[in-house]
Design a protein around this nucleic acid. Sequence first.
DNA 1: GCCAGTGCTAAACAACTGTTTTAAATGGTG
DNA 2: CACCATTTAAAACAGTTGTTTAGCACTGGC
Lengths: 210, 210
Amino acid sequence: MSQTDTVSRILDAAEVLFAERGFTETSLRTITSTAGVNLAAVNYHFGSKKELIQAVFERFLTPFTDALARELDRRAAAGGALTVEDLLESLYRVGMGSLAEQGRDPQRFMRLLGLAYTQYQGHLRRFIVSRYGNSYRRFAGLLAQALPGLDPVTFYWRLYFMLGATIFTMSSYDAIEAILREDFGAQSTLPETLERLVPAAAAMLKVNAE
Amino acid sequence: MSQTDTVSRILDAAEVLFAERGFTETSLRTITSTAGVNLAAVNYHFGSKKELIQAVFERFLTPFTDALARELDRRAAAGGALTVEDLLESLYRVGMGSLAEQGRDPQRFMRLLGLAYTQYQGHLRRFIVSRYGNSYRRFAGLLAQALPGLDPVTFYWRLYFMLGATIFTMSSYDAIEAILREDFGAQSTLPETLERLVPAAAAMLKVNAE
DNA sequence: GCCAGTGCTAAACAACTGTTTTAAATGGTG
DNA sequence: CACCATTTAAAACAGTTGTTTAGCACTGGC
């Protein structure tokens, strides 16, 4: 078993288990046994559990922010000002696409993102902010440009309202969809739900703008 | 030290610590030592840690849903159909008021609510749904009435978008507000932020309605 | 004045946590 | 083939976890 194999097996198992139960609730023994590797391999390859958590985030956030940057470049080069809807669509399409093409589950990453915000893991928040702050600021800046005439503080809060609606809904997508199916007999796919989210979030951002 | 005293000291400490760090990250020893009571008192009075968690939620959710029911009764009796804004304002005012008048922190309960959704605690979700499902359904029903012409599935998802925006923003309120103060030099109070949230969330719910 | 019963405490329990240690095996290089 | 760094393995480590036990202090009722 080569090194890269062991490392990625650990990352695969950790990603699934963290998203399912959270960080503290997932022991290294559970991770290594489902990965089929030795317990000590985590500390050998990653140093500590904290660094493993960061590595899990790095492995999906870096491709995501890279793909988002390319998508924004592409849209900007196509000319014409970007609308709020354009930006949200880009964000969601990249979120769905850049990870799905690796055969990985988009909802899982939304759950991880949600955990990063809500769990008590100071190191994770610091890690994400320092590593991906620039991508965040670029997107937020473009969104602010698409919303002229909105005072900065109002924009700031609405940005978080939008993030909340997105992360919260996507990270509990399975549970919410299950209730929908049970109570209404209807069902939704993830892309359908994102298509509903774009106009709703855009309307929220745009109240009294322009 | 009377019984009620020990019980409520444990609940007070657990409420603060759970909201701060989460459930798994808070040990019974931390709770009992900050409460100034013996470790075994938790198992004696509550039976188990799970039941303590449920008791913490019960102590703030019951007054909240009771106050919400009274507020909705009052508004309904005043005559006239309730608008989306009316309902959101009622919800937020009760959330702020009914707990603040007990001298307890509203943001703390938002954090707890957020945790209930995101943390891996099946028993908690079941407990809340079975105990407070009726209050939830009454509010959702009134909101649906205020949004005629909206197909049920779209309404359903937007309800969760709204809950996400609310719970996510409120549960991370301190952190978000701190960044605002640092980057913009501006500051917001919680009531101000809720005043921003009402029209934003209402706009999101109302897209293409009526 | 005793007794039942409630509230509370200190100590111990077994199970589990992340991490480290020691030794064995592996695989490419000279 | 021999060598050495890399990688894995099993075991032990020290610390923490929720829970239970056995006994103490105190109350109100008879």
